[in-house]
């Protein structure tokens, strides 16, 4: 499944912002910088992305450069899928 920014946006809003649709989340907004995500939140995000897109995220890849905004996340997932690290 290809990463879909809207799909990710929906997950972020539902899971971390109590589904509040009034919140404007821009593609480059930092999840941690805006206080949307804490350390447990990062783990929740990892679990979601792994299941949803069939990839497996290594510990050293758990860094803001890969996961901390919609744009970064979409790029990272696409890259992982291309590099053939599909879990199944």
């Amino acid at each position: 499944m290809t990463p879909d920014a809207e799909d990710l946006r929906r997950f972020i809003i539902e899971n971390f912002l109590y589904g509040d649709q009034r919140i404007l989340l821009k593609d480059d907004d930092s999840f941690s910088g805006r206080g949307i995500i804490d350390s447990t939140g990062v783990l929740e995000l990892i679990a979601f992305v792994e299941t949803r897109f069939g990839i497996s995220i290594e510990d050293e890849e758990v860094i803001p450069e890969n996961l901390d905004s919609l744009a970064k996340l979409t790029r990272y997932v696409a890259r992982k899928q291309q590099s053939g690290s599909h879990a199944g």
Binding site: V42, L43, I63
Partner: peptide, 18 residues
Amino acid sequence: YLSGFQRTAGYLQTFFGQ
């Protein structure tokens, strides 16, 4: 003592850097 804190060590700068 916080679960998951070690795995998200790469995030320290963004969590505490605000």
